Simulated assay, not measured.
Amino acid sequence: MNIKSEKHAKELKIFNMVYGNKNDLIAMPKDKPDIWVDNLKGENFGVEITELYKDQSEARLNNVKGYLNKIINLQEYIHKHDKENLKKVNISYYDKSRKEEVNIPSVLTKAAGFEEYFKLVELSIIEKSSKSKQYNKNLNYHNLIIHDNTSGLKFESNTVINFFSKNSISEAILGSSFEEIYLITFCGQDEYVLPLKRGLYIYNIYLFDHVVNIAHNIKSISDELYYDCMFEFLDYRGFKKIRIINNENIEIIYANSGFVLQNEKIIFNLYDRSLPPNATQAIIRNCFINHKTIKLIKEIELVFELNSNIGFKVAK
């Protein structure tokens, strides 16, 4: 298998971590972006694949064949920085069957710290988004999949979105050109797929519900004013291209996710396909956001936390 074939095989493997359970998709390894996808309805979209490492040393350790054994057995390094970042160590454990201590040679890498990790994800999104202008424009839209290969941080699947919402990375996510950004990372002992735009959307819908209830008292305002306030709130928070489907219940759509308020219950729909033709752009009216409201939003967000599992386990 040549280098290009190996690259395509790896990209398809990561693609299937997100889309592996969808039988109506035909994925084709291409370029700009990495995978072009057709569905049975004749619609298409593109997916860019990228892998996240703490540094280039960690990337070389994972991607250069035989590099681990070369460090362990010969103490040979490809790059001068690798000698500092990739430390040869002996891992000891007690083997009960042999009744003795066993030493296994290995390579120790430095784990990314909390702030460093989010900066790595942020820079990856910004870099890929800047290159998306070169992608095939005949595709309906483009998604990004980031496969996290860093070591150290593990999140809880039901609270992870709070970290992305209260960090500067949210600006990179919302400002990107991708319809959706999927981060594959560990939550507990399992690998999860986290749709970051959808997660931020859900987080902010619930945050808005808290804010508007204090600012206006939901029961005392009309549906029209409620939605006008929501559009303005989402726009203020960085959500652009908010669209509406005005059926029996109004559906507000951002990226691939739709929000419906039905009988005082919040329902989220997922659109993995093109939106219905009756989806229209939301109109932003100046009726809600002012100095007083902004202060209220900041006060509420200091203590607000969403407990919701916004992701799903990697497809097997």
Rank of each mutant, 00 (worst) to 15 (best):
V260G: 04
V89G: 10
T150Y: 02
L144C: 08
H81R: 13
N143E: 11
K88F: 06
C287A: 12
H147V: 11
H142G: 05
N90L: 13
G188W: 01
N158G: 04
L234G: 05
S57Q: 04
M28I: 12
K13S: 10
G20P: 00
S274R: 12
S132C: 09
P105E: 13
Y94R: 06
E301M: 05
S151W: 11
N158C: 14
N39F: 01
S5N: 15
I3M: 12
K241P: 09
E191F: 09
S168E: 14
L207F: 04
G42L: 05
K110W: 07
H291K: 15
K313I: 14
V303M: 14
A27M: 05
I205Y: 03
N213Q: 09
N138T: 06
A279E: 04
F312D: 09
L153Y: 02
L306H: 03
S124I: 04
I283T: 13
L12R: 00
F208C: 04
N213M: 10
F155W: 11
V160A: 12
M28R: 11
V37I: 08
F231I: 02
T50R: 05
N256Y: 07
V121K: 08
Y53W: 12
L139V: 06
I310S: 02
F15H: 00
T293F: 02
A111W: 09
I71D: 03
E127M: 10
C187F: 07
G188I: 05
K154Y: 10
L261S: 11
I267C: 07
Q56P: 01
F268D: 05
I181M: 02
P33T: 05
T293V: 14
G113K: 12
K7L: 11
L296H: 04
Y201W: 10
L234Y: 03
I294R: 08
H8G: 03
L196I: 01
E6F: 13
G311F: 02
R198D: 01
K137M: 09
P105L: 06
T150M: 07
S176K: 03
Q189T: 14
I35N: 00
N21V: 08
K10Y: 14
I91P: 06
N149E: 10
S177Q: 13
F163M: 12
L234W: 06
S308I: 01
I184A: 10
Y53M: 05
S165H: 08
D55F: 00
N23Y: 11
T150F: 05
L296P: 00
Q281P: 10
Q134L: 15
T150N: 01
D95C: 07
A215F: 11
A172I: 02
Q189L: 11
I14W: 01
E179G: 10
I173T: 01
S157P: 08
I289R: 07
I78G: 02
V121W: 06
H216F: 15
K316Y: 14
D272S: 09
F186R: 14
S132Y: 03
K197Q: 05
G152Q: 03
F268A: 11
A315C: 15
P105C: 10
R273Y: 11
Y254D: 03
M230W: 07
Q75M: 13
S157K: 13
H142R: 10
S124T: 13
G238F: 06
